[in-house]
Nucleic acid binder design. Structure first.
Lengths: 244, 244
DNA sequence: TGTACATCAGTGAACGCGCGTTCACTGATGTAC
DNA sequence: TGTACATCAGTGAACGCGCGTTCACTGATGTAC
């Protein structure tokens, strides 16, 4: 195997594994004591290390460990969402509503399963902490997937329910439009942002407990609201063809 | 004046004023150092107190001060939203879209002006912290206002765009329906929850920085998205009558 | 296969810091007669 | 109007705690010849 990721000596393997252990313990403590309360000494203790300074062999400091957790969180969420979309696409590539539902549920399932990691990436920003480029790259994956659905809609020539985008709103989209293939219809870009915003709004409300006094079966309700939104944004408009 | 709130001795007045000072300083520090970093000693220092223990004359502990800040936050936000709706209602009580826009902008304006207080109440929940009843009462005010719009819609006999609510989603609404006047149409209750969810989703994204790389003029975009949502939820359906 | 050396993981002490909370106390401000 | 007492605000010391990070070090594991 000439193109293996790299030959790992036993020492390198042990090192990589231990970095994984460190992050896992850190994640557990984050869950127990809340974001912002990440303590290197506590992590070292739980790992059985006699001295906390040993961690400096693996991370240059507390912030670096925190960053690694954040990037991992985005990556893990991105993986889950992409896998869900890939599965849905294999079933019916043209069923944009189905793909939207798959992505949305994947995001929610992940958030419910990892509430503290979710809080870390979508909760209050940590003060004095600026996200490195890695974070941005991983954080873009889910919105990118959602954008893909609306670009597919645009490719069909379907412009959605047909609400016009007023000039000033259109102007404020410029930073985004510059990152997109030219000619993307503003109406559908708005649709994508709306879907993205609503998805994380609903998940945040559930994960942060703002809905617990109101909804009995969050998953069932989420399924409904997200399907309803997808339909209203035009994703349900099936291309005429094989319906099953 | 027999029914004055209470006769305040000078000492009482000074006490109330000083409690206000404490909270104001605490809010400033929260803004500077981030949520969760509230320190009694730092607050005492900034107030010019020689010893931090003096604060225990005013709050039984750190958690009590934090709670006061949270309740104040909800109250302040609730005040802003209610004032906006009252103003809009005086202009045109029947213009539900106008009232929705007024409430939404009030929430966003408040959040943009007080980002750290916003993070305190709508960001990641503080661990090991359970909200006292006061919090709930104040926190319900904005959703209650939004609910009022949809109840008004229901009173008109207008059931909105007419998407049926499937049985399991309907079932999961039971905890909420028990707190509402009986006979509220599920379709409109869903509309209210959708509006509420989207509003705070959009504001959270903006305040927490998830949109900064994408939108140039957040306020203009917000105006558009929120108007669009309100229309789609049926709030734009004007009652036939005086149009001006 | 064996030796000399370099690399690396982890230790342990120390620096300097900040924190919430308690407690007995001083001294000023108010109240009752 | 004046005196005796109670209430209250703020002090200052102390307890016990945890934290991130540095540094010189020991001893094991790998590498080169």
């Amino acid at each position: 195997m000439p193109s293996a990721p790299k030959a790992h000596t036993p020492r390198e393997r042990a090192r990589i594994e231990f970095i994984g252990d460190i992050k896992q313990v850190a994640r557990r403590q984050l869950a127990a004591d809340g974001a912002g309360a990440l303590s290197l000494r506590a992590v070292a203790r739980e790992l059985g290390l006699v001295s906390a300074s040993a961690l400096y062999r693996y991370f240059p400091g507390r912030d670096a460990l925190l960053t690694a957790l954040i990037v991992d969180g985005y990556r893990s969420l991105g993986d889950a969402a992409e896998a869900a979309d890939t599965r849905a696409r294999q079933e019916d590539e043209a069923d944009l509503l189905g793909r939207w539902m798959a992505i949305a549920h994947a995001v929610r399932d992940w958030a419910v399963a990892h509430p503290h990691e979710y809080a870390l990436i979508y909760g209050s920003p940590v003060p004095d902490y600026t996200a490195p480029p890695d974070t941005v790259e991983q954080g873009t994956r889910v919105p990118y997937l959602i954008g893909g659905l609306f670009l597919a809609l645009a490719a069909r020539g379907d412009a959605g329910p047909g609400l016009a985008v007023p000039p000033d709103a259109d102007r404020s989209l410029r930073p985004l439009l510059e990152q997109l293939p030219p000619g993307a219809p503003a109406e559908l870009v708005v649709g994508g942002i709306t879907a993205w915003t609503y998805l994380f709004g609903a998940v945040s409300f559930e994960v942060f407990g703002h809905r617990s006094a109101i909804l009995g079966e969050p998953r069932a309700y989420f399924d409904h609201e997200i399907r309803r939104l997808g339909s209203q944004l035009g994703l349900a408009a099936q291309v005429p063809g094989p319906t099953n």
